[in-house]
């Protein structure tokens, strides 16, 4: 996990072809937790999806080591008919890792390991979704509201997992509204809101007629 670093320079991200955030610049280093703040609809999810490579940036640069991102979103990508262990083992195999026991232990899922995922409660599903991050073996976690439907105890489990991850040289960028009790830096996207009245800043000059 050497040289784990995510650098964002003058980044603009777009939703539905219209810029939502622009001029973003920050750096996420190994061992660091960065918490994204901003009101609903401010573009946090769009930013995370762009960083994860799921959509192209409108402008600017993202520099990060290849295959470093583990993305966790609202949907956990769980299959209801598979058991907890099977779900986790699948993602472990996809990422070329094989050890799922530590992940099960960290999120207190051992007792549930043979339950079908559809029989889990919302919070249990969430924990399983977060356990998936551990089996990816990826250094940079990009998390979108990871604590939704988690109870106090589970939030603490999650915070511990994040702490262990960054202590091991990883990094995490987390969009969340609650205080996780982590030693985290705060990055507020508010000031970077794209000005809807400004002339178009789409990458193509041809777009100006659409503005």
């Amino acid at each position: 996990m050497s040289a784990v670093e995510l650098t964002v320079t003058d980044l603009a991200v777009a939703r539905g072809g219209v810029a939502v955030l622009e001029g973003l610049g920050f750096r996420l280093k190994a061992g660091q937790v960065l918490v994204l703040r901003g009101p609903n609809g401010s573009g946090k999810t769009t930013l995370l999806r762009t960083l994860a490579g799921l959509q192209p940036p409108m402008a600017g640069e993202i520099s990060l080591p290849p295959e470093a991102i583990a993305y966790g979103a609202h949907a956990d990508g769980l299959k209801g008919t598979l058991t907890v262990a099977e779900n986790l083992a699948f993602w472990a195999r996809i990422h070329g890792t094989h050890e799922i026991e530590p992940a099960l232990a960290d999120f207190n899922l051992q007792a549930l390991r043979n339950r079908a995922a559809h029989s889990l409660s919302a919070g249990q599903k969430r924990r399983l979704g977060l356990a998936r991050l551990l089996v990816t073996g990826r250094p940079i976690w990009l998390l979108d509201e990871p604590t939704v439907s988690l109870d106090q105890a589970s939030v603490a489990l999650f915070a511990t997992a994040v702490r262990a991850h960054v202590a091991g040289g990883g990094a995490a960028l987390i969009a969340t509204h609650i205080d996780l009790g982590l030693d985290a830096d705060i990055f507020d996207v508010g000031p970077f809101k794209a000005d809807p009245q400004a002339p178009s800043r789409t990458p193509s000059a041809f777009d100006e007629a659409f503005a």
Binding site: R49, L54, E67, Y71, A75, G77, I94, H95, R132
Partner: peptide, 16 residues
């Protein structure tokens, strides 16, 4: 189904 439950997002960021 994979699109709806988010698996496709995760597969898109996976090493495959």
């Amino acid at each position: 189904l994979d699109f709806e439950d988010g698996s496709l997002d995760l597969l898109a960021t996976a090493p495959i």
